[in-house]
Design a protein around this nucleic acid. Structure first.
Length: 791
DNA sequence: CGAGTACCTGACTTGATTGC
DNA sequence: GCAATCAAGTCAGGTACTCG
């Protein structure tokens, strides 16, 4: 059936039952997750040319679909605008069931038995056969929810912007509202706000065969010059796991910066783009400055959480020293933490703080949100508007490929009307800086367990938190907060637990729940870090114990099942239907090595490897480390669950890092140090190098092999015969095992030149961490926490 | 929409085995 | 003892995909 046929049928039924007396020429067709429905139309191929794929589903963007319907014996052309409620729903309530609750239409249950219910939903044809009346009700109910929701949305839009329309996405409403604020209320020119101008350009039109003049929006020249640097200075949120494994038992609190991104946005004053200037003066970069820079930095050893972001393939890293592209708030913070900072390339945009560009918009969103009941559709709607506007300032900065339906190819997501890298860089930098200021303000004996974008988990007391959140950045944050909500509080408590478990960025669970009675969910911290829990495991508590068991009992070969749906590309290119496909993914609950282990031990209760961390000295150390980890664990099955596992990895790391420059290629996974030593010795013997002489220091290959084996280096005759390539000097890592073996060999071959065999580099040493005590003073007998002050 | 992975592919190295 | 052979292991780069 074609889309047109469906509409004809609907009109015909509407007229014949008297429900419809006038036919519209322009209409919205709405569904929830239209990716499931649209491909079912027989003219799907033609439709794709007129609709767009947004966030993996279908909607109309800048134009509608022309549809010809047959009514009263004649043909009538209608314009259809497609909408997907999925794209118009606040982030927390994506399911149709949630949506139904928001508009007051509950979803219909088809069977009282939950198992039958699930079965019917997966096999709608059987439901139609068994209970046709229920089927019809159920099917229509979904449509009712969508229509009611869209009507509500159109009403809301009209109430705010005075025009009756349904935009394609929620964020589009936010941008429209912001534009209105700028133009009507604040009398600002949107182009001036984001540093652009209109110019007339001549474009040759192939179709018309002559030049057309067109007005295009381009960045002001003095701004354009620095856009690449500003884009480099824009990063996402800070996410790190500072501790691996089970923590000690204590009062742990999960804090969140209240409304982080909107709060930072509200601080931006009206920019004077034409007076933008280059500077390398540190004092030009204050916490509130709209400024970006490429800087060299070095933090003192005493700073536990360095705050300068450095981009890597695996996300943001915060090393002790290096080169960072960041914004003014982080530069100011680094200086106040005692870091040596040198600005190599810096740009500052003067702003008028008395004319903030986003504050009124945010304030209106916050006021509107607070005027509605918490959790209601309106409240969620307004929250989404302010939160999503930050994302729009960053849209299109880092290239993101999206599938273009019309041209059937991947294209870059274009910038939005309010994309501006200076803003995006400032907003995110300010939030990271606020987080960094608090974490570094805590006493050394307080443990910070993890952090994600705008929150962190710590065993600090309320008084310690208060003491840590009084720095200049927090002050500014508090002022902005006060201005927006008349409440200067900056940190909110999200969860309280007694013992957390952590493995990687965005990977935390709860071993012992908290005892707060503030409601459900407060006592459990759970961030699954990309791990799927089965559908039947539905409550947070069940999911938490599922994840915890997964972690404690994991093996390298564990896989987790997940359901994926046919993607848009496959639907369009191969005419594939939307089906669920069961796939499995390797379970990865190992550390991400964004920090360096500083003290390692086997924890008790639950029994598992545990370690505290410190920052890497440089980004290169991290990059190297990640490479070692990937080759060690992801290809060879191995989890780090005990100190013995850790030791094997630590030796592998030292072996590889001390060789570097090609020498570390093809090191063995198990006993890399001794295997390489054997290889080197065999080549040395065959070529009479490194103080060995073939036929003199052992008559036959077999004899030499036996001698090595006796010294603790397993060796076979074939190993010597296979040593066909030239002897490579200094090609052997200097691990404790290698030194012991060589010392033994020296008694057999006194002329052996150890320095010719063994590398002179030191490499990355995470072996020594096994000898260091837990800095937070665990009593290893029972796992109980002993504060360093008492100990 | 950014962050973080998993998976695929093709080229290269290594170590066990075999025949001379 | 040496050369040839082969399967398994290793490496590097690119891409697709999901979650929060």
């Amino acid at each position: 059936m074609k889309l047109a046929d469906l509409l004809t049928l609907a009109f015909w039924k509407g007229i014949s039952t008297g429900a419809v007396d006038k036919l519209p020429t322009l209409m919205y067709v709405v569904g929830h997750f239209t990716r499931a429905d649209i491909p079912a139309f027989s003219d799907f191929k033609d439709l794709t040319a007129q609709i767009a794929a947004v966030r993996s589903t279908f909607t109309s963007v800048d134009k509608g679909v022309k549809v010809v319907t047959f009514l009263d014996g004649g043909t009538v052309e209608k314009l259809v605008i497609l909408r997907d409620t999925m794209l118009l729903t606040p982030a927390t309530s994506k399911s149709l069931w949630e949506l139904g609750k928001l508009v007051g239409v509950p979803k219909i249950t088809v069977d009282p038995d939950p198992e039958r219910e699930l079965f019917y939903k997966k096999n709608m044809d059987i439901l139609l056969r068994d209970k046709p009346d229920v089927f019809e009700k159920y099917a229509i109910n979904d449509a009712v929810i969508c229509v009611k929701y869209l009507e509500r949305l159109i009403d809301m839009y009209a109430g705010i912007l005075g025009k009756r329309k349904a935009p394609a996405t929620l964020t589009a409403i936010g941008v429209d509202l912001l534009m209105k604020k700028w133009k009507t209320d604040l009398k600002m020119d949107p182009l001036e706000v984001i540093g652009k101008q209109k110019v007339v350009s001549k474009i040759y039109s192939k179709r018309l065969g002559y030049y057309k003049t067109e007005k295009v929006e381009v960045p002001l020249e003095q701004v354009a010059f620095y856009l690449p640097l500003a884009t480099e200075c824009y990063h996402g949120g800070r996410g790190e796991q500072f501790w691996f494994g089970p923590a000690f038992v204590d009062d742990w609190t999960d804090y969140d910066l209240a409304g982080a991104y909107p709060t930072a946005m509200a601080l931006i004053g009206f920019p004077n783009w034409s007076n933008l200037r280059q500077t390398t003066k540190l004092d030009d970069f204050t916490p509130g400055t709209l400024g970006i820079a490429n800087v060299r930095f070095e933090f003192p050893k005493s700073v536990r959480f360095p705050t300068m972001p450095v981009r890597s393939e695996n996300g943001l890293i915060f090393p002790r020293a290096g080169v960072s592209n960041c914004s003014a708030p982080e530069i100011a913070l680094a200086r106040s933490l005692g870091a040596k900072v040198t600005i190599m390339h810096g740009v500052v945009v003067p702003t008028d703080a008395s004319k903030p560009v986003f504050r009124d918009f945010i304030r209106e969103c916050v006021a509107k949100r607070l005027s509605f009941k918490k959790g209601s559709l309106d409240a969620l709607f307004w929250k989404e508007l302010s939160n999503s506007s930050y994302g729009k300032t960053a849209q299109g900065l880092h290239s993101k490929r999206v599938f273009d339906l019309r041209d059937q190819e991947m294209k870059d997501l274009p910038p939005s009307k309010i994309t501006n890298p200076f803003y995006a860089a400032f907003i995110t930098s300010f939030v990271r800086a606020a987080l960094g200021e608090v974490m570094n303000g805590l006493p050394q004996n307080v443990c910070v367990f993890s952090c994600t974008t705008d929150g962190f988990l710590t065993n600090a007391t309320a008084a310690q938190i208060a003491g840590a959140s009084s720095g200049p950045i927090c002050q500014l944050y508090s002022e902005s907060r006060d201005m927006l909500t008349s409440n200067p509080t900056i940190l909110e408590v999200k969860h309280r637990v007694r013992q957390p478990l952590g493995w990687r960025t965005r990977g935390q669970a709860t071993l012992i729940e908290g005892q707060a009675d503030e409601g459900d969910g407060v006592n459990i911290v759970l961030a699954k870090g990309g791990i799927y829990t089965p559908q039947e495991v539905d409550s947070t508590r069940l999911q938490n114990s599922f994840i915890t068991n997964l972690f404690l009992n994991r093996t390298p070969s564990d896989r987790i099942e997940m359901a994926t749906k046919t993607g848009i590309r496959d639907m369009v290119n191969f005419d594939a239907d939307l089906v669920e496909k069961e796939t499995s993914k390797r379970l990865n609950m190992e550390f991400d090595w964004k920090r360096r282990p500083v003290a390692v031990w086997d924890a008790v209760g639950p029994d598992h490897l545990s370690f505290a961390t410190e920052p890497w000295d440089t980004i290169d150390q991290f990059i190297e480390m990640r490479r070692y980890w990937e080759s060690f664990a992801i290809e060879t099955p191995r989890c780090l669950k005990t100190v013995a596992d850790y030791r094997a990895f630590a030796i592998s790391v030292m072996s590889q890092s001390s060789l570097k420059d090609g020498g570390s290629k093809y090191l063995k996974r198990t006993d890399p140090d001794l295997n390489r030593l054997r290889q080197s010795l065999c080549a040395a013997w065959r070529n009479s190098k490194a103080g060995l002489a073939k036929g003199v220091d052992c008559k036959t290959a077999q004899h030499f092999a036996d001698t090595l084996t006796d010294a603790g280096i397993p060796c076979k005759r074939s190993d010597i015969e296979n040593a066909r390539s030239a002897f490579k000097p200094k090609n052997c890592p200097k691990t404790p095992a290698v030194i012991i073996a060589l010392t033994k060999l020296l008694t057999v071959f006194p002329s052996l030149e150890i320095d010719t065999l063994v590398t002179s580099r030191d490499g990355i040493d995470i072996i020594a961490a096994m000898d260091r005590p837990n800095p937070f003073g665990i009593n290893s007998e029972n796992g109980a926490f002993v504060s360093t002050e008492d100990a």
